[in-house]
């Protein structure tokens, strides 16, 4: 799909240095089997890489992986702890992003709901606040 190289579910060989770093971080997280903060991840990288990677670089790499949908995160203290996203939900996540990117995703995926406009949100609140008799009005 749009994504290539780094962190691809099939684990293709990586070419770009940035991709290599991402792969190292992903490997650490997958091996850990629990959620890790960027500091913990840095601690588990081997010494050579620790020399190359500053704490803030690890944070950047991990938030980039999160943005790509490869890592899930939850609040841990002042930062986040990250877990790798498993293959099935990864594929599904990539699906939604790929289809979001295409002009035609609407009709292929029948979404439960779409987001609401401000006006629709107000209407909805009024409907659910007790307008039992409102159903007749459907336009």
């Amino acid at each position: 799909m749009h994504q290539e190289g780094p962190g691809h579910p099939s684990g293709e060989p990586l070419r770009r240095p940035a991709g290599t770093l991402e792969a190292e971080v992903l490997a650490v997280l997958r091996a850990a089997g629990t959620s890790l903060t960027p500091g913990e991840v840095r601690g588990r990288l081997d010494a050579r890489q620790r020399g190359e990677l500053s704490y803030s670089t690890v944070v950047t790499i991990m938030s980039r992986l999160h943005a790509k949908g490869l890592l899930a995160r939850e609040r841990a203290g002042r930062g986040f702890a990250y877990t790798p996203v498993d293959a099935a939900s990864l594929a599904a996540g990539q699906m939604s992003r790929a289809l979001d990117g295409g002009a035609d995703h609407d009709a292929v995926l029948t979404r439960f709901v779409s987001g609401l406009s401000g006006r629709d949100a107000r209407l909805l609140r009024r409907l659910l606040a007790g307008g039992q008799d409102a159903g007749k009005d459907g336009g």
Partner: peptide
């Protein structure tokens, strides 16, 4: 405000909800 809610020109979600409430 009024209890009467018109969804004639609303988006799909309020119309679906209104139809189910009817």
């Amino acid at each position: 405000r009024s209890r009467r809610v018109s969804v004639a020109w609303a988006g799909p979600v309020p119309r679906r909800v209104a139809a189910l409430l009817g």
